[in-house]
Amino acid sequence: MEYSLQSLECADPCTVTVDPDNQIYTLKTFDTSGRVFNEPMELVAWIKKNWSPSQFREPKEYQALLNAIKQELH
């Protein structure tokens, strides 16, 4: 699953990749830097700590992202 969120801080979207079959958990954030996580829960914890709904053009997409990750992992 790859999910994109359009932020208010950057023209490029933030992207999150969750691929449990290949154990790939990555994201690209506002400053276009990338992060790689060993476990999906590390990725979710980082998102909850560093991002908030108000940082995105469509704040509801933030919760939709968290829900999509949860669905991908079950």
Rank of each mutant, 00 (worst) to 15 (best):
L65W: 04
T15G: 06
C10V: 05
P40Y: 05
A68Y: 09
N38L: 13
E9M: 14
S33T: 14
K28V: 10
D31A: 08
M1P: 04
E9L: 15
I24E: 08
S52A: 10
P13L: 08
V18I: 13
F30C: 08
F30N: 09
D21A: 14
Q63C: 04
W51S: 03
V36Y: 03
E9K: 15
A45M: 11
T17K: 12
K70C: 12
I24T: 13
L73G: 11
A68N: 11
L65H: 04
V16Y: 03
D12M: 15
F30Y: 14
Q6F: 06
Q23K: 14
Y25F: 05
P53A: 14
W46R: 02
I24Y: 02
Y3D: 06
D19V: 05
C14N: 01
D19P: 04
L66K: 01
L66Y: 01
T29I: 08
S52L: 05
E39P: 00
Y25P: 00
R57D: 08
M41R: 07
W51R: 03
Y62W: 11
S4T: 14
R57L: 09
K48I: 04
Q71L: 13
N67Q: 15
E58I: 14
K60R: 12
T26R: 11
E61L: 12
T26V: 12
N50E: 10
R57K: 14
L5E: 01
S4V: 10
L27V: 05
L65S: 04
S52W: 03
T32Q: 14
T26A: 07
Q63P: 03
E42C: 04
I47Q: 05
N38G: 12
P53N: 08
Q55G: 00
E39H: 13
N38Y: 13
D31L: 07
A64S: 14
R35A: 07
R57N: 11
S54C: 03
V18D: 00
P40L: 01
R35C: 07
I24K: 06
T29D: 11
D31C: 05
D21Q: 13
L5C: 08
L8I: 12
A45L: 10
K49G: 04
K70Q: 15
D19R: 10
S4Q: 15
F30E: 06
T29Q: 11
M1Y: 09
Q23C: 12
P13A: 11
N38I: 09
E9C: 10
V18R: 01
Q55S: 02
Q63I: 09
E39I: 01
V16W: 01
F37D: 03
L8D: 06
M1R: 06
L65V: 03
E61N: 14
P20W: 08
I47V: 11
C14P: 00
W46G: 01
E9H: 13
M1K: 07
F30I: 07
C14W: 00
Y25A: 00
